[in-house]
Design a protein around this nucleic acid. Structure first.
Lengths: 69, 69
DNA sequence: TTTCTATTTAGAAATTTTTCTAAATAGATA
DNA sequence: TATCTATTTAGAAAAATTTCTAAATAGAAA
């Protein structure tokens, strides 16, 4: 995750747009995809680049049952 | 010369290295080339990219005759 | 001016990146 | 569990970028 890799990840306009979309809200891969005229596979590729560069986290909302405690 | 173009120009490691070389001294295209294992044509290409992005100036030391005034 | 050296340009080859399709996997819902 | 939807992976195609060679141009020096 050095500087050149980070720079490379940021050098693509689609990936910069994705980061902007995620600035203030969490979005699923599918919701991100709706903002672009690309296949889900391509979106997935860009997300993987951003993750590799450490510019993106993944929060899993599993099928949790919330319980009163 | 917008942001995306500037970013793109900076996204290449060779071009970043060229900018670092030029940080504190003026160098000819040939002298820049000596730092890399590339042909002069390739260096010229990178210099043109940097110029296009406005990240580089060109100072011409023409065959001037300095005169006392 | 003529010649020598440096740089740029044109066009092709090589490499890298982006994108897609199809298939596989993962996750959610009935 | 079985099925439906979402996401990822694999591999190929398309597009963009980097690099080279050869030729042209520009600049400097004799």
């Amino acid at each position: 995750m050095g500087f050149p890799e980070t720079f490379k990840a940021l050098s693509d306009p689609v990936r910069r747009e994705i980061l902007i979309l995620l600035k203030d809200k969490k979005l699923s891969a599918g919701d991100i995809g709706k903002h672009f005229d690309m296949t889900g596979a391509t979106i997935s590729y860009h997300l993987s680049q951003l993750k590799k560069a450490g510019l993106l986290f993944e929060t899993k909302y599993k099928n949790l049952h919330l319980l009163r405690n």
